[in-house]
Amino acid sequence: MRLVLFINIMVVSLISFFVLKKRLSMLENIFLLIVLEFIFTSYCAILVVNFELWEVNSRIDLFITYKIFEMIILPLFFISYFNLITLFNLWWKKIVFTVFSLGFIYSLELLLVQWNVITYEGWYFWQSIISLSIILLVVHLIHLNFSKLLNKEGVIHR
């Protein structure tokens, strides 16, 4: 049931992402996907394997649920965030949207905790929120530099 629900969330996210008009260029979206995949797999490996702060349920359906979350849903939501944030011009609207997005992404992690897919071992919810915020900031800075480069090369025009 949990796996099926997460597969459904994944499919809805994928379809929504592909049908919605993207605000960023194709190269920027691919760049973000690659960077986010690297960062999230490293982040989760450090938490689960290195420090054992998260314990992932060994039941195969729950394990797959976790992998879908880590490798598809998290990167996809972050890419969507970077596309949607460009819709807002005022700084306070951007902040409100960022807080809402982080809350939404964390609520999915919370769902995994509630369903015993992940068990926190000496880890607290606020640490997840801080980690996600730091990842968001780092990816934003990396993206900003890549966009500047594309702009300089005449590939995008902003």
Binding site: I34, V35, E37, F38, V49, M71, F146, V155
Partner: peptide, 28 residues
């Protein structure tokens, strides 16, 4: 190549390696 393409190709290779190791050499 233009620098942006070089960056894209290089981080794609690194990420493919990372994803492979994460799946094949990970916990399960």
């Amino acid at each position: 190549f233009p620098l942006s393409l070089i960056i894209l190709m290089m981080i794609s290779s690194a990420t493919v390696a990372r994803l492979t190791d994460h799946l094949l050499s990970g916990s399960k």
